[in-house]
Amino acid sequence: MRGPGHQTGASGPAATARAVLITGGGTGIGAAVAERFAADGARVAVAGRRPGPLKEVAASVGGIAVELDAADANSVRDGLAAVLTEFGRLDVLVANAGGHGFASVTETDDAAWDAALRANLTTAFTTARECLPSLIETRGQIVVISSLAGLRAGPSVAGYTVGKHALIGLTRTLARDYGKHGVRVNALCPGWVTTPMADAEMDEFAQHAGLDGREAAYAAVTADVPLGRPARPSEIAAIVSFLGSAESSYMTGAVLVADGGAHIVDLPTLAFGHAGM
């Protein structure tokens, strides 16, 4: 599947531009990352399992849509082959696919556990493994999208939390093993971001908590965040762009947090803040 406005093949003036593959590229953070890299002059491949959103994003950024299952090695190989045929190289992998695992341990059966780890960890592991030979050739970058849930634990999100924590370990082991080949690997942990997935969570939370709609829910969950608001997808995409560029040339194995300051808050002192002290 190809979007309009791109050059076919690896020849021509555009052939020297960076080539970027983004998993989970059809919506939310992935779509914003595609827009940012395209604005930076890169050639962009958006990958995922839903062809409709992928085609829309690819068309909007003049890139290509690659339908694949990021946790399936054969599917990733086929998708990567399409990217290499189109662009002739791969410079940046953004491992953004994720989801599932929103229940406590006792409420998570074997199938749900497997699904959570597959969605949140295996997708990044498999895609990185299959893309590494191409990234070694270009001395490229991998940006792993984890979450604040990769550093902290929320209520009843066992599979998601464990998967996102494991992505930090994956980032570090990739950085350790492949830095000698010139491949840099860094992770980004966003907090609340106004994506379709978060919007759905806010709608559910608002109904459960008796709040007046989505905006009230976002306000409630960021009330104790120093910046007092969720991030826009474009703000997260700007950091991903930095990590996937020469501007971060001496960074590898790093874990950056973009959560409006949520991770610095000392929970036992919240009562003092609420009291105006």
Rank of each mutant, 00 (worst) to 15 (best):
A116E: 12
S11M: 03
Y178K: 09
V143H: 08
N96A: 13
V61G: 09
A153S: 01
H6M: 12
P226N: 05
K55R: 15
A254W: 10
A153V: 15
Y218I: 15
V221S: 07
Q207V: 13
P233D: 10
A115N: 00
E67G: 09
P133V: 10
A58L: 04
A38F: 04
L54C: 11
E235W: 02
T23A: 08
I64L: 12
I29H: 07
T195H: 05
P51T: 15
R50D: 10
I264Q: 13
A223L: 12
R43G: 04
P13Y: 03
V240N: 05
D266T: 14
K55N: 15
H274L: 04
G63W: 00
A65L: 02
A103K: 05
H6I: 02
A82F: 02
N186H: 01
G210H: 10
M1L: 13
V94A: 15
R229H: 00
L121N: 10
T222D: 11
K180G: 15
A262H: 04
V105D: 13
V105C: 14
T85P: 01
A112N: 00
A209I: 04
E107P: 09
A82C: 11
D199H: 09
A97C: 08
A65H: 09
L211M: 03
L68V: 01
K180Y: 05
E107M: 15
A158Q: 01
V225F: 07
A237L: 08
I142E: 13
L167W: 05
A70I: 10
L84Y: 08
L21Q: 03
L170H: 06
P51N: 14
A217F: 06
A47S: 12
T123G: 01
A258Q: 11
T127P: 14
V185Y: 10
A95E: 14
G3W: 06
A153W: 08
D69G: 09
T106V: 15
G154C: 04
R229Y: 07
S248M: 09
A73S: 14
A115P: 01
R118G: 04
R36E: 10
I142M: 14
H274A: 03
G52I: 00
G273C: 12
T194Y: 08
E247K: 00
H208W: 13
E86D: 04
A220S: 13
R89F: 00
L93E: 14
G63I: 01
G12N: 11
H165A: 12
V61C: 13
V20I: 14
A70E: 02
L54P: 00
P51L: 09
S245D: 05
L270W: 06
T252D: 03
A237E: 06
D224Y: 01
V185R: 11
S60M: 08
I236S: 08
T16C: 11
V255D: 07
A116Q: 05
H6W: 05
A198Q: 02
E35W: 02
I22P: 03
V221N: 07
